[in-house]
């Protein structure tokens, strides 16, 4: 059974798995026991807005295609780190059809979760164990938060965490991305969305005046690879002193994490090599690597350092004049 609701209300009232771009779901539904009815948002209106509010807040419709966000000139100008994270994930042919909320809500890429042989034992598939913990977890968590040791797959979630991003949920309204993704201790879910709840938009607060941001992904090849570790850094430097810092990390835990100790260490310091090195080292505070993921701590340190350096080298963001722009709709309006 598949339905194509035309309104949000209709979509919420329909029973079944929500499908937007479908790129991750297609693969997942091939696994035994993960089929069922579909609610396809193809014809659902109201999910593809892209709009800066008067105060500079950016609102991106849940159904907006990832490619259009990553390549959007205004977003790149104001949220360069965010645009880099969004523009570098997956591959161009996936970004062209996959949606923003779909990326946030995709399920883990853990190779045990995806294995037809034993995937149904996995916490995240309704089972009661984590095969990766005692098995091969080379690409898994180095911040062990409990039972499941997979890493969260959403680069957009990681990026939003760095911007204190929000999601608009129907019903219920705005909630923080960290509320949506949870704290990583619930091994059975990749997000805290309940049946009947639908993400309708991603909301980014305006960047701070003069902020620098950069995204970095540690991978083994040049491109098109799930991050071993990914980091987004935002720095606000005033008169040669770091006044604010936000650092988010992905590929390290069942949820994206903020490196709050590193952030604190940067405040009041000059943006120099010593401050960056100390902050990068502090990014592993609270880590608990698995037997095979100790190397990721070094990648965390290296990636945070890399992102800090790149952010600092970059020109600060120039905020557009706060005018209430006309709502903008993507050319891709399916």
């Amino acid at each position: 059974m598949i339905v194509f609701p035309t309104t949000l209300e209709e979509a919420q009232a329909s029973k079944g798995t929500i499908r937007a771009g479908g790129t991750e779901l297609a693969e997942r539904r091939r696994l035994p026991g993960l089929g069922g009815d579909l609610v396809d948002l193809r014809d659902t209106a109201g999910l593809d807005e892209l709009r800066f509010a008067a105060d500079g807040t950016l609102r991106i419709g849940a159904g907006h295609r990832i490619a259009n966000v990553g390549s959007n000139a205004e977003i790149r100008a104001v949220y360069p780190g965010f645009a880099e994270a969004v523009g570098g994930l997956a591959t161009p042919q996936i970004r062209a059809v996959a949606t923003m909320a779909g990326n946030l809500l995709q399920r883990t890429r853990c190779w045990y979760f995806r294995a037809p042989e034993t995937g149904d034992r996995c916490f995240k598939r309704g089972g009661n164990m984590c095969s990766a913990r005692a098995g091969d977890h080379l690409y898994h968590a180095c911040f062990d938060l409990g039972s499941c040791v997979s890493v969260h797959p959403s680069s957009i979630g990681m990026a939003m965490l760095a911007y204190d991003g929000l999601v608009d949920v129907a019903p219920g309204g705005l909630r923080s991305v960290s509320d949506l993704l949870g704290d990583g201790t619930n091994a059975s879910a990749d997000n805290a969305l309940k049946p009947g709840e639908l993400v309708t938009a991603l909301v980014l607060p305006p960047p701070q005046a003069g902020e620098h941001s950069a995204y970095f992904r540690a991978i083994s090849r040049a491109r098109s690879e799930w991050p071993l570790v990914e980091v987004l850094v935002r720095l606000v430097v005033v008169d040669g002193v770091i006044r604010d810092a936000a650092i988010a990390m992905g590929g390290v835990a069942p949820v994206p994490l903020r490196a709050s100790v590193s952030e604190a260490k940067l405040l009041g310091k000059a943006p120099d090599a010593a401050a960056f090195a100390a902050a990068a080292q502090a990014a592993t505070v609270g880590s608990a690597p698995l037997p095979m993921t100790g190397y990721k701590l070094e990648l965390v340190v290296g990636s945070v350092l890399e992102a800090l350096e790149r952010a600092a080298e970059r020109d600060p963001v120039v905020l557009p004049a706060p005018v209430n722009k006309l709502p903008r709709t993507s050319q891709e309006t399916r």
Binding site: G21, G22, A26, T91, Q93
Partner: peptide
């Protein structure tokens, strides 16, 4: 079959997309 190799790429309204993961219903 995972959108990684690109052998299935077609253009959708002129934009290349991975069609092994694209629902056929979205061609409408």
């Amino acid at each position: 079959g995972h959108g990684a190799c690109g052998a299935c790429t077609m253009q959708l309204d002129g934009t290349p997309v991975a069609t092994c993961l694209l629902p056929a219903t979205s061609l409408h």
